[in-house]
Design a protein around this nucleic acid. Structure first.
Lengths: 212, 212
DNA sequence: AAATTTTGACCGGTCGCTCGGTCGTTTTTT
DNA sequence: AAAAAACGACCGAGCGACCGGTCAAAATTT
């Protein structure tokens, strides 16, 4: 709480050396992400994660208190990267003419790139301890909020017709979920559409909503 | 394959008495659904399921070959009930004037009622053996197909403007997922909207797509 | 009494996590 | 600067609990 940025993300550790914590946890997260995607959280053993991270199982537990801690760190890392990517998209979009279309397309491409990671959160978030699942859902809300705020900016700039906050937020949710949808329905959508097709059609739908 | 309806759903059993299979499996499914919803598939033990079903652990394994079998039976039961409910809705809708709105509203209410069950499939389908996960996804495709066929009927009847098959199927996916979305984003949507609000707004969005 | 169904103790194995101990490095003392 | 002490990251064998699944025997049905 004293630190402006809590490097431990609220996950206790026994290690004193702060840069070492960062380094080792990166290794742990890296290994865990791949294993969780491949076999799921419950079928991955802590020994496998430790081995993948290049640590002895005992050492890993100096950086983390439980297997659930690792899942939480993984979820946070995924959301961090998603948020970073989306914010990069928004900055680029500032200069564009077809602003909203561009943002949606780029966001969908982020989802496309991070398919497995998004899926992982859908499937395993339930396994998190209450307190941490709540934090993960807060992250999800924040990401959706980015789209809501962005649309409100466009409205304020006169680039979109005025709309209720309730409507705007629902559109934001729809955009977010349509991105996710490409990841969790790939088995059906991927047979009929490319990501570009998918993006084109869904973008038209969303624009239709906002033009009303 | 000889039977017109395969009572075993392709899951082997050692019991000869067919009505007994149905009865006991209903007990097993009933118990498993509640436990899986509460604690997830992996944290539920086969002993708990057996106890919940009122069977000895050994007896349960006469009706099922593995824990995964139970998960599969649960998924099939959920999809059966969803499909049954949706088909009931479609029959009722036949006489209605605002046909599509009614179908969407009723479908969303089905999702609302079966929230936990839909969520369960999202979270645990990955734990199914390949062959059965494929079957579960086929069920999901079939349910989405119902909406696609229905919209095509409305178009043929002149109640909706003509649209590409590619567009219609995407709308069908959107309707399906918007129903699911209410279940897996309840933690965010439930704070701002009632199911009725949600239905009203999303229905307008879908109608907007189809009127273009 | 033969066939079918049920029982629950038991088996082999796994897993998350702990803990006593090692060893290279840093700090303190002499 | 050499010796001694303290530190802390790392190791991995092992603990205790648990779990999915089996099977010989008992109970029930036909």
């Amino acid at each position: 709480m004293n630190d402006p940025v809590d490097i431990t993300k609220g996950v206790p550790t026994q290690i004193k050396n702060v840069t070492l914590i960062e380094k080792r946890r990166r290794q742990i997260i890296e290994a865990a992400v791949h294993l969780f995607i491949e076999k799921g959280f419950h079928k991955t053993t802590t020994r496998q994660i430790a081995a993948g991270a290049g640590l002895a199982s005992g050492s890993m537990y100096e950086y983390v208190e439980s297997k659930e801690d690792i899942l939480y760190l993984v979820c946070v890392a995924i959301h961090d990267e998603m948020e970073k990517s989306i914010n990069e998209v928004l900055e680029k979009a500032g200069q564009s003419t077809h602003v909203l279309e561009d943002v949606i397309r780029e966001y969908f491409m982020v989802c496309h790139r991070m398919s497995d990671h998004i899926l992982l959160i859908y499937q395993e978030a339930k396994s998190l301890p209450d307190q941490w699942r709540r934090r993960v859902l807060e992250n999800e809300v924040r990401i959706t909020g980015i789209f809501g705020d962005y649309i409100r900016n466009l409205i304020r700039a006169g680039l979109l017709p005025a709309l209720d906050d309730g409507i705007v937020d629902m559109v934001a949710h729809n955009i977010t979920v349509m991105g996710h949808m490409w990841t969790f329905r790939r088995w059906a959508l991927g047979n009929r559409y490319t990501i570009e097709d998918y993006t084109a059609v869904q973008t038209e739908f969303i624009k239709g909503i906002l033009k009303k």
